[in-house]
Amino acid sequence: MKRLASLIAATVALSAFAAFSAPANAQGLTGTLKKVKESGTITIGHRVSSIPFSYYDDKQHPVGYAMDICYKIVDAVKADLKMPNLKVKLLPVTSSTRIPLMANGTIDLECGSTTNNAERKKQVDFGMTYYVVKYRFVSKKSAHMDKIDDLKGKTVVSTAGTTDINALNKLNTSRNFGMNILAANDHAEAFLMVETGRASAFLMDDILLSGLVANSKNPSEFSISSESLGLEPYSLMLRKDDPEFKKLVDDTMTKLYTSGEIMKIYDKWFMKPIPPKGINLNTPVSDALKNVFEHPTDSPDPSVYK
């Protein structure tokens, strides 16, 4: 432990070498807004394969439903701080890096496919729910798997750091499924494991699976299970204990919902051809989501959305 202590002491001492800008004074602001005002930049964490929420188009630029909503929030921040030239930095994150990076201030807003649940709420905060998903699994049609029970004894993959992999673990511990569970680094990699035959199934949020299947080399090869395993709300992630920024996010989203503008964004990503391949997910608004748009909520409790 002596060695460790000296390591930490040395790193801290040396970090002083890195130039940190002296904080300017931004009066009256707190938390993220204060930080954004002082630095003149806002950093958005995005995903690379959460289709159609936040993913790379054919020019490797992050696009998607969540990104569009995020840019509305950036606009609101610009207006609120009177900083029309606010710089927006984009940083790719994964399911396992997003929460520590939010907590340590590397990103200010995460626009991806993040489940809002009570456990995560102890670490971070969330905006209004913008999508509602169910867990399902994708497998090759030739494997004839359709019900959750079909996963028993199989090799099943999910993405590291997601609530889905927790659900898989729970199936193994509480219902003795005897699955071999693999944790992939990101959704695309997990899907490739099914495609290349390394895993029999990939358990994930249904809409993400639809996106991955539609974008694959041979979409007719795969099927998504009819039985699902629970329901979860998605939202934008922000830092905890930051009421000022949280209010701005909530107000912006509520306005987006009640004005009906959200439907334009929704249609653009779920009802029309999307990049990179011009496929159409053809997924109309679910009743649960329609309800959220009419009565915006940031509740992490799945039963609210039933």
Binding site: A16, G31, A103, N104, G105, T106, D108
Partner: peptide, 24 residues
């Protein structure tokens, strides 16, 4: 990657972690 912003906050005596970009 996870620690540097906290160290930065400690150095500049800030109570919230400071922003350090991926490259830095």
């Amino acid at each position: 990657y996870f620690l540097v912003p906290y160290m930065g906050a400690w150095v500049v005596r800030s109570d919230t972690p400071i922003h350090v970009g991926a490259f830095a």
